[in-house]
Write a protein that binds this DNA or RNA. Structure first.
Lengths: 185, 185
DNA sequence: CTCCCCATGTAAGTAGTTACATGATTCA
DNA sequence: TGAATCATGTAACTACTTACATGGGGAG
């Protein structure tokens, strides 16, 4: 059988903490894995149906109030698939897309003020991300049904973004210390 | 006029160091921006044509040997567009996709050996990336036509991946130091 | 001369986002 | 009782990757 998509993994993982609707999964993702693996409704709902077709999750219609919603739970083979993924040793996908660094890369074309402005914007972005993790993710990660690794990864994120911000700060000072020998207009 | 795609920016940026073919651009990307912004042929070639249609680059047929190739160079308005992007203050896109952390997040379901195995795999991945940047990217970044920022970003990447590897190492020791109280099978 | 790799490019498929639609609930 | 917001979901689009095709040049 073909390997799980990462979206599928995220869903199965979230359901391993108890039955949830697509909406619940999305909300959980936004407050936990978002900073290293995000997912949108447009992926989650279709994937839930595909997983149900494959027998990895089972959906149950619940008429809570008037509005109908479907609550999904893991089946035994869903649990098996999650565990298989967790212990497989396929190459780990890793990818960064960061416009800040991209700007930095081409910054020789700017004068020093422009260069500094970009570095500052980049730093502020990282600071904001660190703060957000601290405020939104860390507190929730502790309470979850999921154990001690979610808080660990939240801590990882915070430290990472602080390191990134610190790198920017360091580079800003170095830049300020040098003469402006750039090719800016 | 609508804002440049990031692929377009990468292309314009690379051409700002002199005329290049699509193949050249791809090769340059693979040896410089790849670790924070990659691009594949499937994006580069169509985007080059779109940029030419928009007047930001100009392509010239060169029959080098038998095989025909098109070499593109920046037009003045292409330079302008690149500079406008560099100085714009739109929100900076930033995104990480990392299967290693994703595994870690759900690792409460594993026993400690499984957890350690994943951390180790993750660390080795980062170490390999750091080494690769050191070997392939850093040396080239220095020689380029592009100034001092490419080497700066290469250094950034190396430090980043070393920090990441170090975090894994730290976490591995902490994990080894604790009793195995996990829910592994 | 023939085999392999370099250089060039396209087409098809996958992954992911955004914009929209709609009913339910809350609350001023 | 209307406005805001929560909860649910779909459709259309954009971005990106992969697999393939093809011809030339160099190594043996």
């Amino acid at each position: 059988m073909k390997p799980l998509s990462n979206t599928a993994v995220v869903i199965l993982g979230m359901l391993s903490g108890g039955p949830k609707s697509g909406y619940d999964v999305k909300r959980l993702v936004d407050h936990s894995t978002r900073f290293f693996w995000s997912a949108s409704y447009g992926q989650i709902y279709p994937e839930l149906r595909a997983l149900e077709a494959g027998g990895l999750v089972r959906g149950e219609q619940r008429a809570t109030g008037g509005r109908e919603r479907i609550v999904y739970e893991l089946t035994p083979s869903g649990e098996g698939a999650l565990r298989a993924w967790l212990t497989s040793d396929r190459e780990l996908r890793h990818e960064i897309r960061d416009e800040g660094i991209l700007k930095l890369f081409f910054s020789d074309a700017l004068d020093r003020d422009g260069q500094l402005a970009n570095l500052t914007a980049m730093r502020e972005r990282y600071e904001a991300l660190a703060a957000r993790l601290r405020d939104e993710v860390k507190p929730l990660a502790g309470k979850g049904e999921l154990g001690r690794f979610p808080p660990l990864t939240a801590g990882f994120g915070i430290e990472l973004y602080e390191w990134l911000a610190e790198w920017c700060r360091r580079t800003e000072s170095e830049l300020r210390a040098r003469p402006d020998d750039s090719g800016g207009s």
